[in-house]
C-alpha cells in the first residue's frame, strides 16, 4: 500500500502544480464578481484561459476580457523557472453607430499596429466596426501571488482592476 500512496501523492502534487493558472482564474472570477463584474465568457484552451466580464453601469466599457496564458512551471523541471505567465487584458467599448470618419481612424491605427513589436505593458487600439478594443499584456510570475493553493486574491484583483482602469482611459476619448 505504501507504494500506491507514494504514487498517488506524487500524481496529486503534480496536478496541483499544473493547476496554478486555474487556481488564479478561480480567484479572479470570484474576486471580480464581488466587485460587480459579471462573468459571461469562460473559455479554456490548452494552457490558456480567457475570462470575459460584463461591467454593468460602466460609462465607457461594454466588456473586459482577462487572458491567462501560462508559459512555464507546470512541469517538475520548468518549476525552477517559476510560473511565468502572460496576463492579457482586453477592454471592449461599443459605439452604437460607426460613421465614415471612424473608418478612416480605424485604418490609421490598425495599419500602425502591423509594424509594432509586441512589448509588455504597451496598449494597442483595435477597431472592429462598432467595437473598439484596447489591449495590453503583462508578464508575471504567478508564484508571486500563489503559494500552494493559497492565493493573495486582494492584491491580484486590485492589480487587474488597475490594468483595466488604464485601458478604459485610453478608450474614453473614442466613446460616442
Amino acid at each position: 500500500m505504501g507504494l500506491f500512496n507514494t504514487m498517488t501523492n506524487y500524481a496529486h502534487k503534480s496536478e496541483l502544480r499544473e493547476s496554478k493558472d486555474e487556481i488564479v482564474c478561480g480567484q479572479l472570477l470570484a474576486g471580480l464578481s464581488h466587485l460587480g463584474w459579471r462573468p459571461y465568457r469562460i473559455v479554456a484552451d490548452s494552457d490558456k484561459q480567457t475570462l470575459g466580464f460584463k461591467l454593468p453601469g460602466d460609462d465607457v466599457l461594454s466588456a473586459v476580457y482577462v487572458m491567462v496564458d501560462r508559459k512555464s512551471g507546470s512541469g517538475a523541471i520548468s518549476q525552477s523557472m517559476g510560473s511565468r505567465t502572460v496576463l492579457g487584458f482586453t477592454a471592449e467599448m461599443r459605439n452604437k453607430v460607426t460613421d465614415p470618419d471612424d473608418l478612416a481612424t480605424m485604418w490609421r491605427t490598425d495599419f500602425a499596429n502591423l509594424f509594432k513589436v509586441p512589448v509588455a505593458g504597451e496598449v494597442r487600439i483595435n477597431h472592429q466596426l462598432n467595437t473598439v478594443n484596447a489591449r495590453t499584456f503583462q508578464l508575471v510570475n504567478l508564484d508571486d501571488y500563489v503559494s500552494g493553493s493559497a492565493v493573495n486574491t486582494d492584491a491580484l484583483v486590485a492589480w487587474v482592476v488597475q490594468q483595466v482602469d488604464a485601458l478604459r482611459e485610453r478608450l474614453r476619448p473614442l466613446k460616442k
Binding site: 496536478e15 493547476s19 486555474e22 487556481i23 482564474c25 478561480g26 480567484q27 473559455v43 479554456a44 484552451d45
Partner: peptide
C-alpha cells in the same frame, strides 16, 4: 474550494 481544472 480552489479551482484546479477548467475545460471547455
Amino acid at each position: 474550494f480552489v479551482l484546479i481544472d477548467l475545460e471547455t
